[in-house]
Amino acid sequence: MPVTPVQTPGGIEPAFDLVAYYPVLIYAAVCILFGLSAVAATHLFPFKPRKPTKIKQMPYESGMDPIGSARMQFDVKFYLIAILFLVFDVELLFLYPWAVIAFGEGGDQTWRTVFGTIVFVEIMVFLATFVIAYAYAWKKGVFQWR
């Protein structure tokens, strides 16, 4: 794979090209095909018993008559988890690029010497807000389970 290098302020690095992702694409196609074909195969395979009865096709609830629909109301806690996850996961999203860049050996070291302290303070502030949000959620009783 010929890769034209790119001159950056830090030095030379290989140019970005999508080629690195082709294997992922192929693999993704294979995986999806695998899943679908497995389902399709078992669905279409002719030599297997198929004897549906009315009772066999009822929802299975350990041998009891199902009462009411399964589309039922459930605890709002689950929504809270979803919201919390969104917030915290995005928090992580910000930490990852920083984690790679902050103390890594590659890249522009002069930048790090100049701005290292600022970045350190900033990430501390960031984590502090994170902690505040976490404490808020805790105090609001989001983490109380029943």
């Binding site: 004897k51 009865t53 009772i55 008559d65 199902p66």
Partner: peptide, 25 residues
């Protein structure tokens, strides 16, 4: 449309297959 909830056969009784099921088996 809300369908009525299905019910199981009472315990102890043999399930009565429908005509369709009988034909299939």
């Amino acid at each position: 449309v809300e369908e009525p909830d299905p019910t199981l056969t009472p315990a102890g009784a043999r399930p009565q297959p429908t005509a369709e099921e009988v034909a299939r088996v």
